[in-house]
Write a protein that binds this DNA or RNA. Structure first.
Lengths: 343, 343
DNA sequence: TTATCCTACTTAATCGATAGGATCCCTCGG
DNA sequence: CCGAGGGATCCTATCGATTAAGTAGGATAA
């Protein structure tokens, strides 16, 4: 048997029928006699025939697959529990609706280049910061998409989070406790940030922090800022550096739980008590944060819901139901045990 | 502009050339004059034309995508850090080779049904326990695949782990420490297990445990066994039940780090000291386990390497290079702080 | 007996793009 | 002025399946 090569024509020839008959045998049994159907199926079996996925997709014009356009390489994305949870939310909807999930990382470092290589019915576009070439490209291709972790954009559905409010709240909380020497442990905004300033969630969080500082007569220039890639070890390293300064901070406000974990690691190693000597806060409220010791005070954002909603919006768009829904999800401050009044 | 509807014929008509010319303009510039090319590209731009992904794939016979055939729904898979790490390994290779990664959960609870809906060049097949219908189906379709977390099978490349050795080693370690009342906290083998017995990694781990017991004059009937779905809270619940027994175990041997975390949670809540009163071991050595308190003693399996290797084998198979490589990866016992001699 | 209707298929168009080989046209040498 | 050469361009088969529309043959009804 010529492995994997049998086509519907081969089966048709073997069974002495036309290709249409073969198709009917598989998809439309009532349009063909039982006897012929048997004959066709037998021939198919003998030849090891299975209908080509691509052929069917091309004809049907649908892939039953949704793409996730990622801002970074897979290896980086998947080591981040944030994305795991986000994908979980999107996955819930996919499970229900029978879609598969195509992870599409940049191709040759270009998100744009990756688009033509993904056979999907629509995209969830994650945190694109740089230019908006992607949006134009998707629009011109007529592929539905939903924006996530980006800036709100008319004409495109999106799911956003109230990052600004969350950041404002946690900052105010620390200030209310009496902290004045704050350090912000932020994710690396990438090389483009110098030129264009912050974008998306990071911009909103920074704005929220700045906002909260005002009533206390402080500004961003009064807080120490460390920008590092999101990983526990980077959080650790940055915190060690931060604490080595004269007048080290009394509170570390991390913009990601992962970074906060690293900060606590560093403090523990330096034998600095959390929270009695230094307070630490996170952002995200990953499930691990409740188990973490000390239990982490953090800003909860509904990551799973975000994923679910993005997938929901996308599927609506694919079906041509809704046009351009926007949704902003709330955040909430979860006070646990990693924060206290300064010594 | 008729959004997303422009085809190469439309462009050809608009530019006054044939469809081939359009194709050349995009893929084979040297076969066409610069002037015509410009004209075609201009027409394409005006019409909002972009070559159809599916069309190209059908013609090229390649999708640049590899599928991961998953044994459970996406929502379940993605909440398990084990899979996140595995996918990360596979993702590293995809990044390098320019493949996308298609997550393919069962369709209507059937792994088999999901296969025809995935347009991929090959599959990584994860932990299929039930029957082997999938292998037959993939073979008949002529799609390359690699088996993971399964039983070794001639005629199909696979990447396995020495689960048996790892389980034997950790069991012996606990016995050597002096523990005699062991509890095994195992993952739920699913409904089929009653009829067919254990399969794959679980079978091997159980065998390893049994093997280690022999020299000490013990057998599986001397250890308590709890089988639960892999989640921290299930580990917690099972452990509470385990400890409520008369003569509770002095050591809990979990077959997954996640379950071990849950076990420690439960013990801490019961104010039972780990490791001085009860020892706990895991399996996997997730990166969190080194940060966990007490630092978890566990069996390390090279999950990321497994993912990388699976993807490597698969891509070799897709390119028709290697035939049916098998690889068995080693495990190693990582002794940390969650184990000690019994009181 | 003939018009009518089904059943069971077949024919052919369609989904979009790619590329081998044929064809066209221009230029240059003889 | 004609033929050869060569670059530009076009024709058409192909990838593999689906499905609207058409047809042959038999059964049914008038």
């Amino acid at each position: 048997m010529p492995s994997g090569k049998a086509t519907s024509s081969d089966v048709a020839a073997a069974a002495g029928v036309s290709r249409s008959a073969v198709s009917f045998a598989f998809n439309n049994p009532q349009r063909i006699s039982a006897a012929t159907r048997e004959r066709i199926l037998a021939a198919a079996e003998a030849l090891g025939y299975a209908p080509s996925t691509l052929g069917r997709m091309l004809q049907a014009g649908t892939t039953n697959s949704i793409g996730v356009l990622l801002p970074q390489r897979l290896a980086r994305i998947l080591e981040n529990p944030y994305y795991a949870r986000f994908l979980m939310g999107a996955g819930q909807v996919c499970d229900q609706e029978g879609y598969t999930l195509l992870l599409t990382p940049p191709l040759q470092d270009s998100v744009l280049k990756a688009i033509p290589y993904a056979a999907v019915d629509g995209f969830i576009v994650c945190g694109l910061e740089a230019d908006r070439g992607e949006v134009a490209e998707l629009t011109r291709r007529g592929i539905p998409f939903v924006l996530i972790d980006s800036d709100r954009l008319e004409g495109a559905p999106s799911v956003e989070v109230d990052d600004r409010g969350g950041a404002r709240e946690v900052t105010r909380y620390l200030l209310d406790l009496g902290h004045r020497r704050l350090a912000v442990l932020s994710m690396d905004p990438g090389p483009a940030a110098a030129a264009r300033g912050y974008r998306g969630p990071l911009a909103r969080r920074m704005a929220g922090i700045a906002e909260a500082l005002v009533p206390f007569g402080l500004s961003m220039s009064d807080v120490r800022l460390a920008e590092v890639p999101v990983s526990r070890s980077e959080g650790y390293r940055a915190t060690r550096a931060l604490m080595a300064a004269t007048e080290p901070p009394t509170a570390i406000l991390a913009l990601s739980d992962i970074l906060a974990y690293g900060a606590v690691d560093a403090l523990q190693e330096l034998a600095i008590q959390v929270p009695s000597e230094v307070s630490v806060t996170g952002f995200d409220d990953l499930s691990e944060s409740a188990w973490f010791r000390p239990r982490l005070t953090t800003v909860r954002q509904p990551i799973v819901t975000k994923g679910r909603m993005a997938a929901d919006f996308l599927i609506s768009a694919i079906r041509g139901e809704e046009q351009h829904p926007h949704q902003t999800l709330g955040t909430s401050l979860i006070v646990r045990e990693s924060t206290a009044k300064p010594a």
